[in-house]
């Protein structure tokens, strides 16, 4: 318990340092763009694949539920709601967190244990600005965009499944998608994945920075980092869903 509070406190401090770094100079634009490419653009394949399979599965799953009562026309509505608002952002963020969170922790961690972070400081640059902040910001910016793409791909594959397997026409499908408050759903997904991105960036960096004891230590931190990120995303998802529910959006 004491350890947990200590981690929480240190993570909060790191978050505070990052925020301060955001609003002061120097700001490393090139490193930000590089990280957006490495953490974001390079996560596209996993995003697209996740979207495709989620769309297929959710459509089938919804059909199983409603086929018996002959209400197959409800499938688009059910899929749109669950995929765009909930399953897409959460599953997508977990998948991407596996890649990006582990990547950030192992990279920062290995630089820590081989004294590259100290070398950076000895050469006059602040690793927080040069390394931590660009990684944090990159995933915070890119994750919402990736999730929007994932949602869209998911809907396409859901439509594909629905039309082939359930004979649902395109007009019906896309009308239903839009009628289920499509725009609000997207905003929902956007806010959620923004928060999830912050979690990945913050915790990934944190566990990298506290790595100790050679390559073995980096391995241990990376595992911890991914677990903590996963649990935090699920917890944050509950909190956000509850807030949206109370606000009726």
């Amino acid at each position: 318990m004491y350890g947990f509070i200590l981690h929480l406190q240190n993570i909060t401090l790191l978050f505070w340092d990052i925020l301060k770094g955001l609003f002061s100079r120097p700001f490393y634009w090139e490193d930000l763009l590089k990280e957006m490419d490495a953490l974001g653009v390079d996560s596209l394949p996993i995003t697209v694949l996740t979207g495709i399979f989620l769309g297929l599965v959710l459509t089938l799953q919804a059909a199983i539920g409603v086929e018996k009562i002959g209400a197959v026309s409800l499938v688009p509505r059910a899929v749109a709601m669950s995929l765009v608002r909930e399953i897409g952002p959460v599953m997508g963020s977990l998948m991407i967190a596996g890649r990006v969170g582990a990547g950030i922790t192992s990279q920062v961690g290995s630089m820590k244990v081989t004294f590259q972070l100290d070398a950076m400081r000895s050469l006059g640059t602040d690793p927080l600005r040069k390394l931590i902040l660009p990684k944090f910001l990159a995933i915070t910016i890119m994750l919402p965009l990736l999730i929007i793409i994932l949602d869209f791909i998911g809907l396409l594959s859901a439509y594909f499944m629905a039309s082939i397997n359930l004979n649902i026409g395109s007009v019906l499908f896309w009308n239903e998608v839009i009628n289920t408050n499509g725009f609000v759903n997207i905003i929902n997904a956007f806010i959620k994945s923004f928060v999830f991105g912050t979690i990945i960036g913050l915790i990934g960096n944190y566990y990298g920075l506290i790595s100790e004891g050679g390559t073995e230590g980096v391995g241990i931190s990376t595992t911890r980092s991914v677990i903590v990120i996963f649990v935090s995303i699920l917890a944050a998802d509950f909190v956000l869903t509850k807030i949206f529910y109370e606000l009726m959006i």
Binding site: M111, T114, F115, Q116, A119, M120, R121, S122, G124, D126
Partner: peptide
Amino acid sequence: REDEWFGVRKKIGMVFQDGALFD
């Protein structure tokens, strides 16, 4: 403070154990 140290460190060249080169 850390940002003040950056100026001082220009006067010192540090060679870490094993080099600590940026990989």
